[in-house]
Simulated assay, not measured.
Amino acid sequence: MNDSKVTRRQVLVLGGLALGVGAVTVAGLSGPAWADSAAADVVLVPVGASPVVVLPGVGVQPAAFPRQLAVQVQHAGTDLPAGTEVAVTYDPRLYSPLPAAVATVGKQRLHTTSTITTDPRTTLATCTVTLAEAVAAGSDPVVVVGTAYPVLYPRDLVVGPADATAALGRKNVKPSGRRSLQPHRPSTFGGVATPWGVEVSGVWSRYEWENGKRWYYFPVRVTLHSVGPGPAPAAASFSVALDPQVVRDVSITTARLNHKVHDAGVRLLSHERTASLFETRWSTTVKLKSGDRLDLGLEVRTRKLTGDLQTIKHPSVGLIGMGDHATQRQTGQNLMSRTDAVWE
């Protein structure tokens, strides 16, 4: 994607996280503890495990954002009365709130209520969690209100994401002394970077047997499309995984770059054949620039089949070994597959 304003935009690169409906155990408490103005002996500790990467633009260092909208309330010297509120403010473009916020002490889930409001001026959302029961001193509940979700291309360019914050207060009293939940930036996030992304698509053919009552799909063309704004950091490489009961061999016969015949330097890296998997891994010499499209023609030779198959390996084609994944845009299309075979 070419965009003259990309330096004023942000790219969000997120991993997945699932929260169950039962008790929530949160690992990786990190960051400083701050005294809240509502109670000097109560401190808020951000939950900073596995931060996600946010790319603030071209040629800048990736930033760290919390994976979970979560905070631990430490109160060693005082009870938390019923009506205590924890308010977490976040950018709704980056986070998905839970259907109902969760507060736990160890394996015990506390009784709470929660509401979400949106500031019409800033467009930021605030989830206010109210404890419906008193919590004894030293129990240190963890409050979880939501989690980061993957923002997919082309909406992964996010303008000015706001820091997540939290505050502690009392019922019917506006919380004060708001604290940042932003984690420390890991050194593994690397230095200055340019975001990039590749989409995988293609064309399928269908092999039929048993008078057309059974069939299996296999790829006959693989297309790798660079969405930019930066070039891919490594030459285009991909794998083709098929069912060895159906497919005998795979080869790449043609290559076109931006619709023109091209010597892509296609090379077979490896192949693996077991009773349930036939996978070939391929590399090229093409480093895709923003907007480039590489089309590769495949010849797939099938076996002669009769009768039913007991199992099936659905076909898939996916990127491999493309390098700096911390700066890779989430296109949602780094793998293509078919699951609609009929084999029994």
Rank of each mutant, 00 (worst) to 15 (best):
G57T: 07
R214W: 02
S226K: 06
P56Q: 06
V247W: 03
L277V: 15
T165F: 10
E133C: 04
Y217N: 07
P186A: 04
T285G: 14
D249F: 04
T104Y: 04
T223F: 07
A341E: 09
D263A: 14
V250G: 10
L80E: 01
S176N: 07
V71K: 01
V135P: 02
L14F: 10
D91H: 10
W343Q: 02
A232M: 07
D163I: 01
T331I: 06
T302P: 02
T128V: 14
L277R: 15
V266E: 09
Y153D: 11
L288D: 03
V222G: 00
S139L: 13
P99R: 06
V247Y: 07
F218C: 07
V71H: 03
K107H: 09
H271C: 05
N334H: 13
D41V: 04
Y149K: 12
S187H: 10
K287E: 13
K171M: 07
G48C: 10
S290H: 06
L257R: 11
L29M: 13
P150Y: 09
V145I: 15
T123F: 11
G202D: 03
F189G: 01
S176F: 11
L269I: 11
R185L: 01
T194S: 14
V58K: 02
V247C: 07
G106F: 02
V173R: 14
D292Q: 11
L157Q: 15
L157A: 15
A39L: 07
T113H: 06
P32T: 14
I320G: 03
R303Y: 06
R221A: 14
P141A: 12
V86Q: 04
Q61L: 08
A18D: 09
S114T: 07
A101Y: 00
L17E: 11
G307I: 05
E279Q: 15
R267D: 11
R303W: 06
